[in-house]
Measured scan of single mutants.
Amino acid sequence: NKFNKELQWATWEILNLPNLNEEQVKAFIDSLKDDPSQSANLLAEAKKLNDAQA
């Protein structure tokens, strides 16, 4: 289903952001699991944090 694909993509993207630490990655992944419908928003937040920590 649509959410599953978005969830998988967002998870992969977050796991490959170079500037997030392990705790941050885990928090984002946990949030994705809690509410897959928010995957696009969570991914945007993760990318923002990644850029801020570059």
Rank of each mutant, 00 (worst) to 15 (best):
N1Q: 04
N1S: 02
N1D: 15
N1P: 02
N1L: 04
N1W: 00
N1I: 05
K2I: 12
K2Y: 05
K2E: 15
K2F: 10
F3D: 12
F3Y: 10
F3S: 03
F3G: 07
F3T: 04
F3M: 03
F3V: 05
N4P: 03
N4Q: 09
N4V: 04
N4H: 14
N4I: 06
K5W: 11
K5H: 13
K5S: 12
K5T: 13
K5I: 08
K5M: 06
K5Y: 12
E6M: 04
E6A: 03
E6P: 05
L7A: 11
L7S: 04
L7R: 02
L7P: 03
Q8W: 08
Q8H: 04
Q8S: 04
Q8I: 10
Q8T: 07
W9S: 07
W9A: 15
W9L: 15
W9R: 09
W9G: 04
W9M: 15
W9P: 02
A10L: 09
A10T: 10
A10M: 07
A10Y: 14
A10V: 14
A10G: 03
A10F: 15
T11N: 05
T11P: 02
T11R: 07
W12R: 08
W12E: 15
W12K: 10
W12L: 12
E13H: 06
E13P: 02
E13W: 05
E13F: 10
E13Q: 13
I14P: 01
I14L: 10
I14N: 01
L15V: 09
L15K: 13
N16S: 11
N16F: 05
N16V: 05
N16H: 13
L17M: 14
L17F: 07
L17R: 00
P18G: 07
P18Q: 08
P18V: 10
P18I: 09
P18M: 08
P18T: 11
N19G: 04
N19S: 09
N19H: 11
N19A: 09
N19W: 11
N19K: 03
L20K: 00
L20Q: 00
L20E: 00
L20D: 00
L20P: 00
N21E: 07
N21T: 12
N21H: 13
N21V: 09
E22D: 14
E22A: 13
E22F: 12
E22M: 08
E22N: 13
Q24N: 02
Q24T: 03
Q24G: 00
Q24W: 02
V25F: 04
V25G: 03
V25D: 00
K26H: 12
K26P: 00
K26A: 09
K26D: 06
A27E: 12
A27W: 14
A27T: 13
A27H: 14
A27F: 04
F28P: 00
F28H: 01
F28T: 01
I29G: 01
I29A: 02
I29L: 11
I29H: 04
I29Q: 03
I29F: 05
I29P: 00
D30Q: 12
D30I: 11
D30Y: 07
D30R: 10
D30K: 11
D30V: 12
S31W: 08
S31H: 12
S31Y: 07
S31K: 11
S31D: 09
L32K: 00
L32V: 05
L32R: 00
L32A: 04
L32D: 00
K33A: 09
K33N: 15
K33R: 12
K33S: 11
K33M: 12
D34E: 13
D34R: 11
D35Q: 12
D35W: 06
P36E: 03
P36S: 04
P36I: 12
P36Y: 04
P36T: 05
P36L: 06
P36A: 05
S37Q: 09
S37G: 08
S37I: 04
Q38I: 09
Q38E: 05
Q38N: 13
Q38H: 09
Q38L: 06
S39K: 11
S39T: 09
S39D: 03
S39E: 02
A40P: 06
A40G: 14
N41G: 08
N41E: 11
N41F: 14
N41W: 11
L42V: 15
L42A: 05
L42Y: 14
L42N: 02
L42T: 10
L42G: 01
L42I: 15
L43K: 02
L43R: 04
L43W: 04
A44T: 13
A44R: 12
A44Y: 12
A44Q: 10
A44L: 13
A44M: 13
E45M: 13
E45L: 10
E45D: 10
E45R: 08
E45P: 00
A46K: 00
A46S: 02
A46D: 00
K47G: 04
K47L: 11
K47F: 09
K47R: 03
K47D: 02
K48D: 02
K48S: 11
K48M: 07
L49D: 02
L49I: 10
L49A: 03
L49T: 07
L49N: 02
L49Q: 09
N50G: 01
N50E: 01
N50A: 04
N50F: 01
N50M: 01
N50D: 06
D51S: 11
D51E: 13
D51P: 01
A52G: 08
A52Y: 12
A52D: 10
A52M: 08
A52K: 07
Q53N: 08
Q53T: 05
Q53S: 06
Q53L: 11
Q53F: 07
Q53I: 09
A54G: 13
A54Q: 12
A54H: 14
